[in-house]
């Protein structure tokens, strides 16, 4: 089995308040969703990104307003790191007034400004390549989040081939959490993501750190090159999913879940800077509680007039 959980260690860069707020907003938002499901308040399904929040938070500072971001089924963190609008997102998930997409799209299908998510694995990469083709030369890029499981889809390879051939500014962010729903990577992927990228002549960067500042420093020149050259780039994060695939469907052995928890950023940051962490943690937890109370009380959404 490939163990992708990042090694636990203290953060080397101090997080600024904005980044810490963003991390905690996503963490408390996702926890609130799981609670709401337990209470039977939410319909359908959800895929939380508990443990992976630092990835979109890291990326958020490297992305520009005119970049396109393509997200997937596990996209709440991607959205909140780019657009801190928990009211709109929760209203979308709950089908309430003020929903980002009128309640039609729900958790997995959001289109807001230049952020778009879809629920079919790999589907977004060809679309992102088309958008990047249009953006080439403008300095903007298309960023697409995918998982390790997504590499089973042929669309990924078709898109990488074209993106490399046509030199388009496409940033592929791989959240490799070592498990595709219930199937460990070792049972669903032969070879490596690095070798796949190399086969298409696409630059690949592997991230094992969970330190926002450290990762940003490493990625900044690479992302600049995506824009300037332009050229595609695959950034693979070795990360870990703390929670279940969706809800109550975690079949991993307890020691594996424990190992994922050991590399979680939350406790480490709490220990490093206890006073500030506790203050912002409480602030964001209470913010999410207010969002839940407020959005839950809204009337049902109607599509057509959403943002």
């Amino acid at each position: 089995m490939i163990v992708t959980a990042a090694p636990p260690r203290s953060p080397r860069h101090a997080l600024n308040d904005g980044d810490l707020r963003s991390l905690l907003l996503i963490r408390h938002f996702e926890r609130a969703l799981l609670r709401l499901f337990e209470q039977g308040v939410l319909s359908g399904t959800t895929h939380t990104c508990l443990g992976q929040e630092y990835i979109p938070v890291t990326l958020s500072a490297l992305l520009r307003d005119d970049d396109f971001v393509f997200s997937n089924h596990r996209g709440h963190g991607h959205f909140l790191a780019r657009h801190p609008d928990p009211h709109g997102l929760l209203a979308e998930i709950m089908g309430r007034e003020g929903a980002l997409c009128g309640g039609v799209g729900g958790s997995q299908h959001i289109y807001h400004r230049r952020f778009l998510s879809t629920g079919v694995q790999g589907e977004s990469l060809p679309v992102a390549t088309g958008v990047a083709l249009k953006l080439a030369g403008t300095g903007a890029l298309a960023c697409a989040y995918i998982g390790d499981g997504t590499w089973g889809e042929g669309a990924v390879y078709e898109a990488l081939n074209m993106a490399s051939l046509w030199r388009v500014p496409l940033l592929v962010v791989v959240e490799h959490n070592g498990i595709a729903q219930s199937t460990p990577t070792s049972a669903q992927m032969a070879g490596t993501i690095a070798a796949r990228a190399a086969a298409f002549g696409v630059r690949h960067h592997h991230v094992t750190s969970t330190d926002v500042g450290e990762i940003r420093d490493a990625l900044a020149p690479l992302v600049d090159a995506v824009r300037a050259e332009p050229s595609p780039l695959v950034v693979e994060f070795a990360t870990h999913r703390l929670g279940p695939h969706s809800k109550g469907d975690d079949t991993r052995p307890p020691e594996e879940i424990r190992r994922a928890q050991e590399s979680d950023w939350y406790d480490r940051h709490a220990e490093t800077d206890p006073e500030r962490f506790a203050r912002l943690d409480r602030e964001q937890r209470e913010l999410v509680e207010r969002v839940v109370a407020e959005v839950s009380a809204r009337p049902l959404s109607r599509p057509g007039g959403a943002a």
Binding site: P126, G130, E158
Partner: peptide
């Protein structure tokens, strides 16, 4: 294009979206 009907359609949709 390469022989990639799915991605060709997707790239077309991306251009349209942009």
């Amino acid at each position: 294009t390469p022989l990639s009907e799915g991605a060709i359609a997707g790239v077309g949709a991306g251009l349209a979206l942009a």
